[in-house]
Design a protein around this nucleic acid. Structure first.
Lengths: 186, 186
DNA sequence: AACCGAAATGTCACTAATGTCACATTTAAA
DNA sequence: TTTAAATGTGACATTAGTGACATTTCGGTT
């Protein structure tokens, strides 16, 4: 729940402070007032929404974490570690979840940019994970990379219901790197 | 009767600590002082009233405390629904998760006060869920109620590794109500 | 092109609120 | 008990809000 002052918004938009206050007064920009003399505060999310609504450029410093991460979901630790190595070599932070429950908590906690998902984890339906994630608008920007030893048809089905890429085991480090770099730079 | 420190309020409002103290001094925000040097404390309800009075956004983490909820983790929807009925009749809000992944996300998102957990869900190790949850200080106050058709020994083991109560299937609505009421009032 | 006028934005000075800093002291955690 | 983190305080530095007025912008008109 980070907020911005009218002054910060003024400098972000390269506009006079007076103008920002008028935007808020007119209801063009949603904000609220502190009890004292009524200094204005604007929620970052409201400001971003405002910028998008007016097709204004969004400053990098507002775009969330400076270091986007990767969540690796795989019950086989060796495999997970090897994915992590590739990720690290490409310069990305990553976390490993070896079960569905952990994956859910870590996804919610770290808000990674990319999630690699082993479709064939015992006792966990990868498809329903994709389904459930895609239902939540909160994760609409999350990229899901399905990794599995299953056949092509299974991978295609995963793509159909919302995965963004698929890799068949065994995958080449090069292919994985390409996919990660592509998604992490978006 | 939870209270907040001046520092917590400062970070909630994204305002300097000095300012919060001034608000309290001016009577704009109701609070009281500790005997020591007069460190400030503010009742959550007073703070919420203050936020509402000034049309300021109310942080999710405070809304949660206002209406503590229950997360029901069970893959069998009829069972989950029946637990939910009991919860509702006792006056509690509840959410249902039918898989580990969903459970993780919902736990993190709703921050329920109590989680009922079916130990014998296919393809999901209930013990590891308890283990993982207990490792995180964030969920140290979460009450875990294990519900299972397994034998006594399994239930006891669950209690040993961190569950707070156990109920054997089939459970009586009365027993469940008692457990829920006990934990929800803590 | 030049002109016009309304609406939006910028400027300025002044006052009040908020932030900063250093340091003593208390709390809470280990 | 020890130790690190949080809090309160005073003096002072910055920033924000306001009103009145100047200036720019931008569309339509000549």
């Amino acid at each position: 729940m980070k907020t911005l002052t009218s002054g910060e918004i003024a400098s972000y938009c390269d506009v006079n402070l007076r103008t920002v206050i008028r935007w808020i007064e007119n209801g063009k920009l949603k904000g609220f007032k502190l009890p004292g003399r009524g200094n204005n505060r604007v929620l970052v999310e409201d400001f971003i929404e405002f910028l998008e609504r007016h097709d204004m450029p969004i400053p990098d410093s507002l775009k969330g974490d400076a270091t986007p991460s990767i969540l690796i979901v795989d019950d086989e630790m060796p495999v997970a570690k090897s994915i992590q190595r590739v990720a690290r070599r490409a310069g990305f932070d990553s976390y490993i979840a070896t079960g569905g429950f952990q994956a859910g908590i870590m996804l919610s906690q770290y808000e990674p940019k990319v999630m690699t998902l082993d479709l064939s984890m015992p006792g966990m339906d990868g498809y329903s994970v994709i389904d459930f994630t895609r239902e939540q608008s909160k994760y609409k920007d999350l990229k899901i990379v399905v990794i599995s030893a299953l056949d092509d048809i299974s991978l295609e089905r995963a793509l159909e219901i919302g995965a963004d890429a698929s890799l068949q085991k065994p995958f080449s480090n090069h292919d994985l790197t390409m996919v990660l770099e592509q998604f992490m730079s978006m």
